[in-house]
Computed example of a mutant assay.
Amino acid sequence: MHKILLVEDDIDYGTVVKQYLEISGFDVVWTSDSIEVNALFEQHNFDLAILDIMLPIKDGFTLAKEMHQNHPNIPFLFLTAKNQNIDRLLGLKLGAADYIAKTCDPEELKLRIDNILRHTPKETTTVYHLGIYTFNPTLLRLEHPKRTYQLTERERDLLLLFIQYDQSILEREVILNQLWQSADYFNGRSLDVFVTRLRKYLVDDDTIQITSIRGVGFKINLNL
Rank of each mutant, 00 (worst) to 15 (best):
T80K: 02
T80N: 06
T80Y: 01
A81P: 01
K82L: 15
K82D: 08
N83W: 02
N83I: 12
N83A: 08
N83E: 08
N83D: 14
Q84L: 13
Q84I: 11
Q84E: 15
Q84P: 00
Q84G: 06
Q84F: 12
N85I: 15
N85D: 11
N85Y: 11
I86D: 15
I86H: 10
D87C: 07
D87S: 14
D87A: 12
D87H: 13
R88T: 06
R88Y: 04
R88W: 03
R88K: 15
R88A: 14
R88N: 00
R88P: 00
L89P: 00
L89G: 00
L89N: 07
L89W: 06
L90N: 10
L90S: 04
G91K: 01
G91F: 07
L92A: 08
L92V: 09
L92F: 12
L92G: 08
L92Y: 08
K93P: 00
K93M: 07
K93Y: 05
L94D: 07
L94E: 13
L94N: 09
L94A: 12
L94C: 12
G95H: 04
G95T: 03
G95Q: 01
A96Q: 01
A96E: 07
A96Y: 06
A96K: 03
A96H: 01
D98T: 09
D98M: 07
D98H: 07
D98Y: 09
D98S: 13
D98W: 11
Y99P: 02
Y99Q: 02
I100P: 04
I100R: 05
I100C: 08
I100S: 08
I100Q: 07
I100H: 07
I100F: 09
I100V: 15
A101W: 00
A101F: 06
A101T: 11
A101Y: 04
K102D: 04
T103K: 09
T103S: 15
C104I: 14
C104S: 12
C104P: 00
C104W: 02
D105H: 12
D105W: 00
D105T: 02
D105E: 12
D105C: 02
P106M: 13
P106F: 11
P106K: 05
P106E: 03
P106Q: 06
E107V: 09
E107K: 13
E107Q: 14
E107M: 08
E108W: 11
E108M: 12
E108L: 14
E108K: 13
L109F: 03
L109G: 01
K110S: 06
K110W: 07
L111M: 08
L111Y: 06
L111G: 00
R112V: 03
R112E: 09
R112Q: 14
I113W: 10
I113D: 04
I113C: 10
I113H: 05
D114T: 05
D114P: 00
D114L: 13
D114R: 10
D114E: 15
N115Q: 13
N115E: 12
I116L: 12
L117P: 02
L117E: 07
L117C: 07
L117Q: 10
L117S: 05
R118V: 01
R118C: 06
H119R: 14
H119P: 01
H119F: 15
H119Y: 14
